[in-house]
């Protein structure tokens, strides 16, 4: 069966199945199990209403449990076993990892990414949001800066591979160097240590638009009175921005920052496409993929290290969500 046809059948079966599930289960609940008639009508309606939320949520809970909650435990358990999964070796995989220079490089690089990318994307996004705010062509400018959001990490990497190309007739960077009188082109993605920043810039390029859109909405939400008062008190544009506007949108800045932080821990595509982890550019997600299909024990151990890094953000997010709900 060709995949396209298979896809159409899946849509029909999936969508039809979902609708059928919700409809049939509701029908069963209301008509057969707890019918809203007969001597126990009151009790039946109450019981049906008690059960119904779980009917509505069952598919979601099932899928979430299987595809996101179970793997947290499944991965942890798997990381305690050896490569073939036959022998329990405790923290053996973690010990091997920490003893490896490659893993330490990946952790170091990953912290570098975590430090630089969210900060740079948020700062640039804030700058773009503020500058485009009252510009006549601001919306077009925003649209252009936002556009990389739609491009895949692979596509973006390819776009930047052109810019970074080790050839003054293809790569923009080397062309500019050539114009300034450099003798030979350099391969920027092979310069030790600094190559990481060239890879990071790709993600910053993608994420600035995201930060800009959200921060721009936050800036618009600032009460006009506070700005007017500051201007009347003689605050200049810079002072106005840093002392009046930024403090008022601090909450949103933190949200943007953490969202990009989480993203940084998921993106393996850029490193994979640009260098394949060579030249000392591995980060944890790409390092994990280098063990995928070869050593499940080590791969899950790396994945669990990523989970441990994410954990504080997760706890903070949950606390924040619970506070908002009250």
């Amino acid at each position: 069966m060709p995949p396209v046809f298979q896809g159409i059948v899946t849509i029909l079966v999936g969508v039809g199945g979902c609708i059928a599930y919700f409809w049939v289960s509701n029908w069963l609940l209301d008509r057969v199990i707890f019918p809203a008639r007969g001597p126990n009508i009151g009790r039946n309606i109450n019981r049906a209403n008690l059960l119904r939320p779980w009917l509505f949520m069952f598919p979601a809970i099932f899928v979430l449990g299987l595809y996101l909650a179970y793997p947290v435990f499944g991965s942890f358990v798997r990381s305690l076993y050896n490569r073939a999964g036959t022998e329990f070796i405790g923290l053996g995989n973690y010990m091997t990892l920490f003893a490896e220079a490659g893993f330490r490089t990946a952790v170091f690089n990953n912290f570098l990414w975590l430090l630089v990318v969210p900060a740079a994307a948020t700062a640039l996004g804030l700058l773009a949001a503020q500058l485009t705010d009252r510009l006549s062509w601001g919306n077009i400018a925003k649209s252009m800066i936002f556009m990389p959001m739609a491009i895949s990490f692979v596509g973006a990497s390819l776009i930047w591979k052109f810019v970074y190309a080790n050839n003054a007739d293809i790569g923009l960077i080397n062309a500019i160097r050539d114009l300034l009188g450099a003798e030979r082109p350099v391969d920027v993605i092979q310069i030790p240590f600094w190559n990481n920043f060239f890879l990071m810039f790709i993600l910053i390029w993608i994420q600035t638009g995201f930060a800009m859109v959200i921060l721009s909405a936050a800036l618009r939400g600032i009460p006009e009175e506070t700005i007017e008062a500051a201007i009347l008190d003689g605050a200049g544009p810079v002072r106005l921005f840093f002392s009046v506007k930024v403090p008022q949108i601090m909450g949103t800045i933190v949200v943007v920052w953490t969202t990009i932080t989480i993203l940084v821990l998921k993106v393996f595509d850029i490193v994979y496409t640009m260098t394949g982890g060579n030249f000392g550019t591995h980060i944890l997600p790409s390092y994990m993929m280098s063990f995928m299909f070869r050593d499940d024990g080590r791969a899950t151990a790396v994945a669990f290290v990523i989970m441990l890094i994410v954990l504080p953000v997760m706890v903070w997010n949950i606390a924040q969500a619970r506070r908002d709900m009250r």
């Binding site: 509505f56 595809y67 499944g74």
Partner: peptide
């Protein structure tokens, strides 16, 4: 809909929002 455990479930969804995909790969493929 009102039911016991709703707040807990919402918190769980917020928590799952940031679970790294990498964790899911090996157990689910197996």
């Amino acid at each position: 809909m009102e039911f016991p455990g709703r707040a807990l479930l919402i918190a769980a969804v917020v928590g799952l929002l940031v679970v790294p995909l990498q964790l899911a790969l090996v157990p689910l493929l197996n």
